[in-house]
Amino acid sequence: MNDLRAKSPWITHYNTGGCNGCDIEILAALGPKFDIERFGMLNRGNPKQSDILLVTGPVTLRCRDVLRRVWLEMPEPKVVVAMGSCTHGGGVFRHLYHTENGIDGIVPVDVWIPGCTPRIEAIIDGLIEGVEIWKNKTKEKEYMVGHSEKLLEKIGVLND
């Protein structure tokens, strides 16, 4: 069953304040030349129905809570794929006053795709890697980095 499941990963993409370079490449990956729908991947855009959270950008402070909410809205099993150098600790934006130095302080990351900008081959490879990890995950609930009731309340998901 898990093998069948692995053929249908749906993607939500969230740009946490990057330079668009990665987003362009994601759009290109959807296009006819690379066509990631071959692997059953769809860009759903809706975290509630997605399995892979594809994050780009260095996580600006404004985007931090949005990223957390989007991640929380995804039902398990889910994987987070961090794409581009900025997500890996901030990249060129490391230690700027309005960035969080990468996403691993915010949500647990499963796959890192290096490069600025990663080549599309690398994106596809990273996504496939993510799918391999995702295949072995279970329904078991995952927790955010620094998960606590206080944090949940702060980002406004406890009571809407």
């Binding site: 809706n46 975290p47 509630k48 949005v66 990223l67 909410r69 989007v70 809205e73 980002i155 809407d160």
Partner: peptide, 12 residues
């Protein structure tokens, strides 16, 4: 079954 707030583009 866990309850989750409605999707609102990640905003509140």
């Amino acid at each position: 079954v866990d309850q989750m707030h409605p999707y609102n583009c990640g905003e509140v």
